[in-house]
Design a protein around this nucleic acid. Structure first.
Length: 835
RNA sequence: GCGGGCGUGGCGGAACUGGCAGACGCGUGGGAUUUAGGAUCCCAUGGGAGACCGUGAGAGUUCGAUUCUCUCCGCCCGCACCA
């Protein structure tokens, strides 16, 4: 491992010698917090020879109150950062604020506080809370997304996307949250409800800004393979969300109406209805077509068809949730129109159905009731014919058969197996100009306009002459005006004349500014890059800096961002890579998703009255106890049940550690301790285990190993005349340092060391010290332990076997039995197999 | 419905590649110290009087299964009218 960062000269470190007998975390934690801040202990190292390690935790929204979930998230990250620092890495461990967003604005409305002030004060309060917990952040790299220095580049990046054809404006049906008075991206609608406020989302047709994330669908999907360091669960969620499907687009010519059932099309219009299907092999089983209620043709056909018009109105008014629930009753109306089968020319009725989604595929499907359960239900309900075209032995009757099989009644394709039929039919369609294979994704473009004030203004201008014009880079930032009037349900920006009225950057004529702001997920899609060059003012970040620090080696955060922040950030990274600003494809090498902190089996929440406040815990027990408990109580990815008794236990352990140092390692005082072979072995074993456990985030077992060591040290010094050696105490302080930085520092100082324990190299264990001369073996007969013997570690299998068969207790159980064989597992056990 | 994960003492959890189940902590019981309480220290603590029985239930593979395979039950998470 590379060298340790240049040691800061901290003349004041470690001068006190006698610790008081009582552990007073409030005092020592205050003291070290101040000294660490003064000495710049956690400043990011400059360019050095050591390998880098970028440890990042998801930055918080400054709600004003740190909760236990944050404490857990940041304690995990901090323990890792400290461990890596001691291992000799150049560590980047920054923190910042995801500080644009609705709560600030709502607080403004409720309390009459300006969002800027509310946010600023919350940041100050949370900063104090973070400091009290002893997290080793480099605050010189603090990033605050709501400051012009930052959002200027958020806007800059928006323009970059725009230039690359990845930001565009279009009118589309969108998700509207009435409570938040704004639209939402698909990712932000969970089961038909707003992810933030849980209100039912309603559909609206609006013109909005989108980022073309779908252009990266395949890339985002493919590169999941690079993310071996991510939990499989998160990868699967992204995979599902992207939702790739390979199928075919098939076009059905509309029949000439002749009789004029739909006047517009006239005769010989050549119009076609395109459908998307993954089952082109069932093409000959089509007995009707179904359009989504939003389909333009459906709307046209509704002209002069009151029944259809009424159905469309009803169906489109249904909420997303009603529309997409699998249990919803399938309903439809015949439009009166027909189309023709591309191969047989058969007349097929065109229906409109509520179960067809406009936003997926082409917004129209072919009805194959024999081979699709939904179509089957629909056909049975409305008396449409069912035509079987795929057969398989044992396929059920009286229901749709959705599996593969062999084609029947399918013209020239009859006799082909499903899979081959799919490709053959697609090629035939393509030859006839009536279709082709096509890959579709469930992922939709990211809707990023928000009709709210507290966000980065979208840097665009509407000019009556020139149309949509981007704000020139030189004019950034487009500043958010401070003096605005807040009204419920309205975007305050629209009411600020000095903001809205502007000159067109292209022609100089009067123009109007975009008043929508960016989704705050844009701000958080690139903040991890900004930490590399936090004060760069010419660009969002410098290439050399991101080359040095990125990608993030370890990202820690909640799983709730699996298809939000984590997907958006991957998208941003890929776009910036394609723009030549970055040299890597994935921003987060390794991801650790920590579990929730729960109490009484439920998520902590104000409404349930089961919230434990970090401030109270820190005030009562100190930060070290809080950190230790959180790391010890459960493995990081699992939910953690808060336990007051457990916290007491953590505090008790730290008391024990404290006394060890306060009493100089012995009760008699003074005498230099001696290291017994047993103690030496245990110490080295502990160093090994704690290091290995930290590498795999097994904080709970690492801490339990430290506890075992401390218990052994108590036993050691309990024996007459024995004292714990100085070197042992020094090593203990080092291995405790990632978990309990304050106590470790104080302990280190008590040993008359100069400098901070947090700059010490991580101890190295001596493999030879682990070797035991004697090992205890369990002696089994028929798999049951009957005796134990201690043998030299080097004993050979035949020797061990002989000793085993010599054991009186073993022989007792062998009486009258035949020995089939003897299994010797070196160092562990012997099993005598009998019959 | 589909996919994934998890079921271990009174509780949180250990057991990493199949090898002594229950590390560590909490709780509980006992003891020491103390006028007393608290704090501290020490001992015990899966069940059973015992032979033995025990990792959700049942089967299988193996000398040996918490660990691997199959079936079932329960809980959690994700996806779900995506054509």
């Amino acid at each position: 491992m590379g060298s340790i960062p240049p040691i800061l000269l901290l003349s004041d470190f470690g001068r006190q010698v006698c610790l008081e007998d009582r552990y007073t975390p409030a005092e020592i934690e205050t003291k070290w917090r101040e000294r660490w801040a003064e000495s710049g202990l956690y400043r990011t190292p400059g360019a050095g020879g050591a390998p880098k390690y970028y440890c990042l935790e998801m930055f918080p929204y400054p709600s004003g109150n740190l909760h236990m979930g944050h404490v857990r998230n940041y304690t995990i990250g901090d323990a890792l950062a400290r461990f890596k620092r001691m291992q000799g890495y150049d560590v980047l461990h920054p923190m910042g604020w995801d500080s644009f967003g609705l709560p600030a604005e709502n607080a403004g409305l409720a309390k009459g506080l300006h969002p800027a002030r509310w946010t600023r004060e919350n940041i100050a309060a949370m900063r104090r809370q973070l400091d009290r917990l002893g997290f080793s952040y480099d605050w010189e790299r603090e990033v605050t997304t709501c400051l012009p220095d930052y959002y200027r580049f958020t806007q800059w990046l928006f323009l970059l996307f725009y230039r690359r054809g990845l930001a565009y404006r279009k009118k589309a049906p969108v998700n509207w949250c009435p409570k938040c008075s704004t639209v939402l991206a698909n990712e932000q609608v969970v089961e038909g409800k707003c992810w933030r406020c849980d209100s039912d989302v309603t559909p609206r047709e609006l013109e909005q800004w989108f980022l073309r994330i779908t252009a990266y669908a395949q890339n985002l999907l493919d590169d999941l393979e690079l993310l071996a360091g991510w939990p499989e669960r998160v990868r699967t969620m992204q995979e599902n969300w992207i939702g790739r499907s390979a199928g075919a687009r098939i076009e059905f010519p509309l029949e000439d109406a002749g009789a004029g059932s739909w006047p517009e099309s006239g005769s010989g219009s050549g119009e076609r209805i395109a459908v998307y299907t993954t089952r082109a092999d069932t093409l000959f089983g089509v007995t009707y077509l179904v359009l989504a209620p939003e389909h333009p043709l459906a709307r046209r056909l509704a002209d002069g068809n009151p029944e259809l018009a009424a159905f469309l109105t009803r169906a489109t008014a249904e909420s997303e949730r009603e529309r997409t629930s699998a249990e919803s009753e399938k309903e439809g109306v015949f439009t009166g129109a027909h189309c023709l089968h591309p191969f047989t020319g058969e007349r097929l009725p065109v229906w409109v159905g509520n179960y067809v989604l406009y936003a997926y595929g082409t917004g129209a499907v072919m009805g194959v009731p024999a081979h699709d359960q939904r179509d089957y239900l629909f056909a049975v309900k409305y008396g449409l014919p069912v035509k079987t075209v795929v057969v398989e032995e044992g396929m059920p009757a009286g229901a749709a058969y959705e599996g593969p099989g062999v084609l029947v009644q399918s013209g020239e394709f009859t006799g082909l197996p499903s899979e081959r039929a799919k490709t053959r039919i697609a090629s035939a369609l393509e030859a006839a100009g009536l279709g082709r294979t096509e890959v579709r994704y469930r992922l939709r473009d990211w809707l990023i306009s928000r009709q709210r004030y507290w966000g980065a203004p979208i840097p665009m201008v509407y000019c009556p002459r020139c149309g949509i014009v981007p704000v020139p880079e030189a004019d950034l930032p487009v500043r958010l005006p401070e003096a605005v009037e807040f009204k419920v349900g309205a975007n305050p920006l629209a009411g600020v004349r000095e903001f809205v009225e502007t000159a067109c950057p292209a022609c100089g004529g009067p123009a109007r500014r975009e008043t929508d702001t960016c989704d705050t997920f844009i701000c958080s899609s690139w903040y991890y890059l900004r930490y590399a060059s936090p004060r760069a003012d010419e660009l969002p970040f410098r290439r050399a800096d991101v080359d040095r620090w990125l990608p993030v080696d370890q990202y820690v955060g909640g799983v709730e961002h699996a298809v939000l922040h984590l997907l958006y950030s991957r998208f941003f990274t890929k776009v910036l890579r394609d723009a030549g600003m970055l040299g890597f494809a994935e921003p987060f090498q390794n991801l650790l998703t920590q579990g929730m902190v729960i109490k009484d089996g439920r998520k902590m929440s104000k409404s349930k009255g089961n919230v434990v406040s970090p401030d109270e815990i820190v005030a009562r027990y100190g930060a070290d106890t809080a950190r230790l408990f959180i790391l010890f109580a459960a493995p990081p990815e699992k939910d953690l049940e808060w336990s007051d008794h457990g916290v007491e236990g953590a505090a008790r352990f730290l008391q024990r550690v404290w006394r060890l140092y306060a009493q100089g390692g012995g009760t008699g005082g003074g005498a230099a301790g001696e290291e017994t072979p047993e103690l030496r072995r245990l110490l080295h074993r502990t160093v090994k285990k704690v290091g290995e456990d930290l590498e795999r985030f097994s904080f709970n077992t690492a801490i339990s190993a430290c506890m075992e060591l401390v218990n052994a040290l108590y036993a050691h010094r309990g024996e007459a005349g024995r004292t714990v050696p100085h070197a042992t105490l020094a090593t203990l302080a080092k291995i405790l340092a990632p978990f309990v930085p304050f106590l470790a520092e104080e302990a280190w100082g008590s040993l008359r060391h100069a400098g901070s324990v947090h700059l010490e190299p991580w101890p190295i264990y001596d493999p030879e010290a682990l070797v035991e001369a004697q090992v205890e073996l369990a002696l089994q007969v028929g798999g049951r332990v009957r005796d134990r013997i201690t043998v030299p570690a080097a004993a050979t299998a035949p020797e061990i076997e002989a000793l085993t068969l010599n054991s009186a207790r073993v022989r007792q159980y062998l009486d009258g039995k035949e020995i089939v064989r003897v299994v010797v597992v070196p160092g562990r056990l012997v099993n005598v197999v009998v019959r």
